[in-house]
Simulated assay, not measured.
Amino acid sequence: MTNALTKMLAERDWILADGATGTNLFNMGLMSGDAPELWNEQYPEKIKALYQSAVDAGSDLFLTNSFGGNASRLKLHNAQKRAHELSRMAAEIGRDVADSSGRTVIVAGSVGPTGDIMQPVGTLSHSDAVEIFHEQAEGLKAGGADVLWLETISAPEEYLAAAEAFKLADMLWVGTMSFDTAGRTMMGMTSAAMVEMVDKIDNSPLAFGANCGTGASDLLRTILGFSAQGSSTPIIAKGNAGIPKYVDGHIHYDGTPELMGQYACLARDCGAKIIGGCCGTMPEHLRAMRAALEGSSKSGSPSLEAIVAALGPFSSTGDGTEDNAPTARVTRRRRRIA
């Protein structure tokens, strides 16, 4: 186990993470419905190119191609017995890229949700979830990941199961949730409730935050919600590159590099220390984000009006903490690879 991210967090005012996995892989030929994790074996040169593009664009940290690499997800492709192996491959490719970069680059082992609903609402038990996450964590550890990166989680029970699994694997970790339901996660968690949960976890993450969701404006409102709680744990912001639009049979995100540069600086000003992009974020966006961060200094926390003026309107009127905020939606979690 390395402490590369711990050291970087202590030395840096901000850290630039990577962008999208799925968007880039679709551009390389991945078809809808395919398992990206199988490409770690079938097309390792393309996965290497994915990682390298983030490093070349200035990312200090990139996520491995293992978001859906747990047994529950891989079962959809009859590859559930390959969770450890495919995750190891994802990290090994990343380790080679990072070690050849000539600078410190963090390999973050991506761990996505199981796709199942946990008990008592669903059928997935805590012990089974821990086992699923532990298997994948061990694979990423064997491949040389510096840190585990839990992402796009909606249920606190799943977040806590992953924390327990990562302790079994003796790996440092960070974890983000997706606040995609009018300021809450799909299972109804608010930004304030997440901070409370993170501060109480025995095996606490090195950093926590939000990823994906809807637009960048909404994500920054959530980041402000985190900052307002006063936690000393570093915050992660990994927002989508604008809003998805269906054009000529394909999903496109309308965020320009200039907009993502503004987003990066606003994310820093909102309190985020690790800043990256999620769906739709390409190398050109990352270059603009790096240039914007390097070319400006941190200022005071922006108002909601300033965020809207720079990035566009929020998708909901509130941040999920209102009395009439939406309740949990019980559905099978969709696979996010964009």
Rank of each mutant, 00 (worst) to 15 (best):
T2L: 06
N3S: 14
D13V: 07
I15G: 04
I15H: 12
I15T: 09
D18P: 10
A20S: 15
G22V: 08
F26R: 13
N27L: 13
N27G: 15
N27T: 05
D34N: 15
D34V: 08
W39D: 05
W39L: 08
P44H: 07
E45R: 08
D56K: 14
L61Q: 00
S66N: 09
F67E: 01
G68S: 14
N70Y: 05
L74C: 10
L74D: 07
L76R: 15
H77K: 09
Q80P: 00
Q80A: 12
Q80W: 06
R82Q: 11
A83F: 01
H84N: 08
S87A: 15
S87V: 11
A90P: 03
A98L: 02
D99Y: 03
D99Q: 15
S100Q: 09
R103M: 01
T104M: 02
A108G: 09
G112W: 06
T114H: 05
Q119T: 15
G122N: 10
T123P: 00
L124K: 04
S127C: 08
D128G: 00
A129R: 02
V130R: 02
V130Y: 01
E131G: 00
E131I: 00
K141V: 10
T152G: 08
I153G: 13
P156R: 09
P156F: 12
E157F: 03
Y159T: 11
L160Y: 00
A161C: 02
A161R: 01
A163T: 09
F166C: 11
L168R: 11
A169S: 07
L172I: 11
L172G: 12
V174E: 07
G183L: 03
R184L: 06
T185S: 09
M189T: 15
S191P: 03
A193W: 00
V195S: 11
E196G: 04
N203P: 10
P205G: 14
A207L: 08
F208P: 02
G213I: 09
T222A: 07
T222H: 05
L224I: 08
F226C: 03
A228D: 11
Q229N: 05
G230M: 00
I235T: 05
I236M: 10
A237R: 03
G239E: 04
G242C: 01
I243K: 07
P244L: 04
K245H: 14
H250S: 15
I251C: 11
E258D: 06
M260N: 05
A264W: 09
G271T: 07
K273F: 08
G276F: 04
G277N: 11
C278V: 01
C279A: 06
T281M: 09
P283L: 13
E284W: 10
L286Q: 12
M289Y: 06
R290L: 12
A292C: 12
K298H: 14
L304T: 03
V308H: 05
L311D: 10
P313A: 03
P313C: 07
F314G: 04
G318S: 15
G320S: 10
G320L: 12
A325M: 12
T327D: 15
A328I: 05
R332S: 05
R334T: 12
R336G: 00
